[in-house]
Design a protein around this nucleic acid. Structure first.
Length: 474
RNA sequence: CGGGGUGUAGCGCAGUCCGGUUAGCGCACCUGGUUUGGGACCAGGGGGUCGGAGGUUCGAAUCCUCUCACCCCGACCA
């Protein structure tokens, strides 16, 4: 059993904190609400970046970088945007030993800076579309923070695109939310619900917000990524017009989309267990670790020699031989389990004699003896199997915990225990507020391509045309 | 901002009510030896001035005043 990790049953929140700190993913910093992402955690982020970046570039996007300081006046140009973000902005008022002429906001998101620049770059329909992404840090002064899920400063990517037509901008918005869905499922083994946010929950300044919502082990929802159709809101705020083929001046249509280090929190709460982290193989910076076992110096030499020989020609980043002589094997087993390494290979004198090794998979703990000869393809297949198994488990959890609810009292009771609930909702803000106040849950999204179904609002009983997803959330 | 709580070694805590030699304990750390197929054991060792400031006293981690920080619940939150 794991030492010093609170079990999920005892206290799910504390379990999460224990996992993050003990696996050395991250640590609290001296600044309240800000965390340090340690090598173990940063490696996961690098893999997230690697794969997403490729997906962005394959769909025609390019990376760029914009400044982290935004003149305060920029924020106020879009009315809803400023209302949504002003309360959580950090503002620099002094620099270089003097008070600044105009305060600088530490970006909470970059729409304003980017549209101030796009104004200079766009004149003609020939300048469009612009498909830019940036990897950056942003700062939002949240009152309550949680490691990875909500921190004052966090890392993310933000895509900002400019288009000549509404159709094109909407298509971009939809394309990106589906890229997020694909990434979540294929790489993170984290199934998600794709849908539209309600008017009240949408991004400040957007016409429409699409999101992916994951279901974590405790049944709570996590907004794991968003893609916004911004219409002409920012183009109007920053006066970004282009001349179309009919010689007319027209405001540019826009999208923006992002995922953050929050994904790492989602990954942890999707797959990890009471023994520690469980990393999906496709995100693991170290897929395989060897734990050699010996009693004497002679045995040590023998075992290490065998391990070296059998891994000749393997990718150095694929495996590590944990040859520390001052730590016992049992401890190593536990350490690597805690760190979530997908496959552990035990190799001792007995195995060397039989020319075999013991292969242990992290997700199920299953141990299998395999011959040293021709091991690599088997490990690769096993990694694929682990990846598939994690996704299947997460999918099963989501399916089993997605329910239909038609009676508010029953819903209120049920939602406390977690899970997604498909409910009818009339579309009124007042009913949405009622749900939030009475049940501590929120409408997560209106499912994308959701089936039409006649029904009545769970609150006011007025007609509803489709079901929405409601749940408790992080 | 309202309610509650905590500050003593890197971490977790005891000691505080009822002031009294050198401030303890567990984990971690360091050295040596024995160990090594699921978190080793023995021996030795280093490290704190008790969140901060002021006061009472022969004497303060302990009592008093002020102050700071952090945590939990609530409010808030792509």
């Amino acid at each position: 059993m794991a030492k010093g990790i609170t079990t999920r049953e005892q206290n799910y929140s504390q379990w999460y904190i224990d996992i993050v700190l003990k696996s050395e993913m991250a640590d609290y910093s001296p600044v309240k609400g800000c965390m340090v992402i340690r090598p173990t955690g940063y490696g996961i982020w690098e893999n997230i970046q690697k794969h997403l970046d490729r997906m962005f570039k394959e769909t025609g996007h390019q990376n760029a970088y914009f400044p982290m300081f935004i003149p305060e006046s920029f924020l106020t140009k879009e009315a809803e945007h400023v209302e949504g973000f002003a309360p959580e902005c950090a503002v620099v008022t002094h620099a270089g030993g003097k008070e600044l002429e105009e305060p600088l906001v530490v970006r909470p998101t970059s729409e304003t800076m980017i549209w101030a620049m796009y104004k200079n770059w766009i004149n003609s329909y020939r300048d469009l579309p612009i498909l830019i992404n940036q990897w950056a840090n942003v700062c939002r002064w949240e009152m309550r923070t949680r490691l990875f899920l909500r921190t004052t400063e966090f890392l993310w990517q933000e895509g900002h695109t400019a288009h000549a037509t509404e159709e094109e901008a909407i298509a971009e918005t939809e394309q990106m939310v589906h890229i997020y869905q694909k990434f979540a499922e294929e790489y993170m083994a984290m199934p998600v619900m794709v849908g539209t946010k309600t008017e009240q929950e949408k991004f400040a300044g957007a016409v429409k917000t699409l999101s992916i919502e994951a279901m974590l082990q405790d049944g709570k929802a996590l907004q794991a990524g968003t893609s916004h159709y911004l219409g002409q809101n920012f183009a109007k705020a920053f006066d970004v017009k282009f001349q179309n083929q009919n010689k007319e001046q027209e405001y540019v249509y826009a999208s923006s989309w992002g995922v953050s280090t929050r994904l790492i929190g989602g990954m942890i709460m999707s797959h990890s267990d009471d023994n520690g982290l469980v990393i999906p193989p496709k995100l693991a910076s170290l897929p395989v670790v060897f734990v050699p076992i010996w009693r004497s110096d002679e045995e040590m030499e023998l075992v290490l020699k065998n391990a070296d020989e059998m891994t000749q020609g393997w990718d150095k980043l694929f495996f590590k031989i944990d040859d520390r002589d001052n730590v016992k094997p049992g401890r190593k087993f536990n350490e690597w389990e805690l760190k979530g390494i997908p496959i552990r290979i035990e190799i001792g004198p007995r195995d060397c004699e039989n020319k075999e090794v013991v292969v242990v998979r992290r997700d199920t703990g299953e141990k299998v003896t395999m011959p040293m000869e021709g091991l690599l393809p088997k490990l690769e297949a096993l990694l694929d199997d682990i990846q598939d198994n994690l996704l299947a488990n997460a999918q099963k959890r989501m399916d089993e915990n997605t329910h239909i609810a038609d009676d508010f009292k029953e819903y209120k009771k049920a939602v406390k225990t977690g899970g997604f609930y498909k409910i009818h909702w009339c579309g009124e803000n007042s009913c949405e507020d009622y749900i939030q106040e009475r049940s501590k849950s929120t409408i997560r999204c209106i499912p994308y391509n959701g089936e039409e179904e006649e029904g009545e609002c769970i609150v006011c009983h007025k007609p509803s045309k489709r079901r929405v997803i409601a749940a408790q959330s992080y």
